[in-house]
C-alpha cells in the first residue's frame, strides 16, 4: 500500500517533472543498453570521442547533465538514435461554408516511409463558423 505522504507528493507533482524523469531515465537506460550491446568500455568510448575518461565517467555516472550536443556526439559514435523528435505534418484540409478542419498525424522520423504503422488520424484543429449570421 502506498503511503499517504508519497501519494500527496505525487498528486502535487507538476507534469513537466514527470516528463523529465521519464525521458531522462529512458535515455540513461538506452545509453547503457547500447554500451553493453556494442561492448564499449568507458575508456574506449573516451578515446573515440577524444574526451578524457573522467569526462565520460561523469556523463555515464550522473555527475553531468546531458546536453543536446553531448547526446549528438553519442548518437554519432554509436550510430544509433537516442532521442527522437516526432514530426507533425498537417496533410489534409476539409473546408466548407461553415467550418474548416485540419487533420494531422505524427510519425516517428526513422519510419516515415512505412505507411502501415502510421498512428490513428486525429483531428488537430476545428474552426466553427458562425451559424447565426445572416
Amino acid at each position: 500500500m502506498r503511503s499517504k505522504v508519497l501519494q500527496r507528493i505525487l498528486d502535487k507533482t507538476p507534469t513537466d517533472v514527470e516528463i523529465f524523469v521519464d525521458k531522462y531515465t529512458d535515455l540513461v537506460l538506452r545509453i547503457n543498453q547500447i554500451l553493453r550491446e556494442k561492448g564499449y568500455s568507458q575508456k574506449n568510448l573516451a578515446d573515440k570521442l577524444d574526451k578524457r575518461p573522467s569526462e565520460i565517467h561523469k556523463w555515464l555516472n550522473g555527475d553531468h547533465n546531458f546536453t543536446l550536443r553531448s547526446i549528438a556526439k553519442l548518437e554519432a559514435e554509436f550510430g544509433e538514435i537516442l532521442l527522437e523528435v516526432p514530426s507533425r505534418k498537417p496533410t489534409i484540409e476539409f473546408s466548407s461554408y461553415q467550418s474548416k478542419m485540419t487533420y494531422s498525424f505524427t510519425v516517428p522520423i526513422n519510419v516515415i516511409q512505412k505507411k502501415e504503422i502510421i498512428e490513428d488520424w486525429k483531428r488537430a484543429t476545428t474552426e466553427k463558423g458562425l451559424s447565426n449570421v445572416g
Binding site: 505525487l10 507533482t13 531515465t25
Partner: peptide, 10 residues
C-alpha cells in the same frame, strides 16, 4: 517530486 516519480513510476 522527481524521486517520488522515479521510484513509483519508473
Amino acid at each position: 517530486e522527481e524521486l517520488a516519480v522515479f521510484i513509483t513510476r519508473k
